[in-house]
Design a protein around this nucleic acid. Sequence first.
DNA 1: AGCATCATGTAATTTGTTACATGATTCT
DNA 2: AGAATCATGTAACAAATTACATGATGCT
Lengths: 202, 202
Amino acid sequence: MSSSRYALLSLLAREPLSGYDIKQQMNNRLAPFWKIGSNQVYPELTKMEEEGLIRLQGVEQHTYRPARKLYEITEAGRQAIIAWTVEPVEMDYGTRDDFLLKTYNTWLIDPQTMVDRMEHARRQHEERLFFYESKAEELKQQRRLASPHADPIASTLFVIEFGIRWERLYIQWCEDMIKDLAIANGKQDVPDPGPPSSSEEP
Amino acid sequence: MSSSRYALLSLLAREPLSGYDIKQQMNNRLAPFWKIGSNQVYPELTKMEEEGLIRLQGVEQHTYRPARKLYEITEAGRQAIIAWTVEPVEMDYGTRDDFLLKTYNTWLIDPQTMVDRMEHARRQHEERLFFYESKAEELKQQRRLASPHADPIASTLFVIEFGIRWERLYIQWCEDMIKDLAIANGKQDVPDPGPPSSSEEP
DNA sequence: AGCATCATGTAATTTGTTACATGATTCT
DNA sequence: AGAATCATGTAACAAATTACATGATGCT
């Protein structure tokens, strides 16, 4: 069974949501860790309802727009998400990141072009870092200090914290590579592998 | 077009390889960043040959076993991988990590169980860290210091360096979460992180 | 004797992506 | 006027996983 269904259940374990809500939340909370399209959300919700993991809590009808179907998790669903969460994971080696793969090809590319790409990547990750940092601030306000380990917000903060560290790492790594390439470029005995010499192409 | 084909080309840009070699190298070099099954490798090689991006360099026949088909990259292939590498990437939010998703559900789980899982994860990442570190040492010996930016080994080191930092981050994050949960778990003893504490379920 | 390695591949199935379709409302 | 938002979904396609199939050799 795909983990995507458990991503849905993980959200529904916290509060009742519609399919639309779920998609939105993926971009605001689980954001960088899980993304899913409507094509997967709606059929999966139907399936999970049939299996009794969730149930329709109610339908909001605004006359002019499609019915908003709110789902809530059932006790069976709760047990299912707990059972899955508790299963030990084997680390997957399959984290695919295009930029990393491209970095592996640095030797094929004019250094200045590569530096440009790395600065581009760095900027993207900086943006996301800011996003996470403000998200984290916001959540820290809401956290119930009483029973932190049973508080969903504390769990969200774990994940956000990971995101923050990940973005910092990415930014730092980009900067360090840029430095390395600058040194290499500086020596300029470059018998370079050819193509688009200076500023821009494709 | 899937990036997987460019993973193949990235390897073939460095040296001629067979489909089997490619699979092996994914576990020794690109390891954590790209994985692929034989079902994708062989058909993709056929397709790329038809498109003129690679060509059959030779076939080694050992009588008793299947022919070993060595492929080499063509000039068209070289241009293709360069063009792809130079294309700016838009950061993808889709990095899926089951453990991160499970962490999001910490609040549902008995803290001690969660701590056990985090220790398990930490151990896995420690193993991989050691692997990367020794890999990096090995490669640093081979690096040609003359023109570092045109040296494929230097590019590999960029990627390995990322892996090293990533594993360190993961380990540190696990440790910090464990500490947090220990505090939450509270007044109890909470022995030092080390012995796999048994008393487990599913 | 039994299992891992080398080496190619195919088949079946599940996942995931991209695009499309509808349609009133509110924001710019 | 035109775009974005809310809200459901479907269809077509692309990609990935899992399992299977073959088969000699070498290692334990």
